[in-house]
């Protein structure tokens, strides 16, 4: 049912399109700022919806494991900055949530994970290596929390193949 969307998600081996999005009402974050270490992009449909909440709450707890690989996690949805800041404060999230709000879903489109009908992104994960290439990607059914095993597996593999970008810390 989601084939036409998930089929278009950027695949491993492709260069991760750079972007700049607001992380707070007065701060932007660019993907290129994070170059040199692995990046986990977690696209999710919306702040506050139950599954997303659980998924982001789970990732919040997994941060030490991600950090072990030197990886930075960023959440992205089409919600605006003020919505993100309220959501992050309420859930005590310790990683940036980027607002893919204007042009709406522009970054989700660039990664092939925009759901035009709903005006949200897919629930999609991308693990990007230190050089800015997509190492792993995964699109879940919107209602299903994908957990963290896929991300951790991808980080493992990456660390095994290029120890210099891996788990130094």
């Amino acid at each position: 049912m989601d084939q036409q969307h998930s089929g278009t998600a950027l695949a491993p081996g492709q260069t991760a399109p750079d972007f700049t999005l607001p992380a707070t009402p007065d701060q932007n974050l660019s993907l290129s700022d994070l170059k040199g270490a692995p990046v986990i992009l977690a696209f999710y449909p919306a702040d506050w919806s139950p599954v997303c909440g659980d998924q982001m709450a789970l990732y919040n707890e997994v941060l030490p494991e991600f950090r072990h690989f030197g990886a930075q996690l960023v959440g992205i949805s089409t919600d605006g900055v003020w919505c993100h800041s309220a959501f992050a404060a309420e859930r005590k999230l310790h990683f940036p949530l980027l607002a893919d709000f204007e042009p709406k879903g522009g970054v989700a489109r660039a990664y092939g994970v925009y759901r035009a009908h709903e005006g949200t992104s897919e629930r999609a994960l991308f693990v990007i290596d230190a050089a800015g290439k997509i190492a792993w990607s995964h699109v879940s059914p919107v209602g299903i929390n994908p957990g963290a095993d896929g991300i951790l597996g991808a980080l493992d593999e990456m660390a095994a193949h290029s120890p210099s970008t891996g788990a130094a810390s």
């Binding site: 659980d54 998924q55 707890e61 997994v62 494991e65 929390n145 994908p146 957990g147 963290a148 095993d149």
Partner: peptide
């Protein structure tokens, strides 16, 4: 326990 859960696909 927690780490094993993550690796096993615990999602909540």
């Amino acid at each position: 326990d927690f780490r094993g859960g993550l690796r096993s696909g615990v999602n909540g």
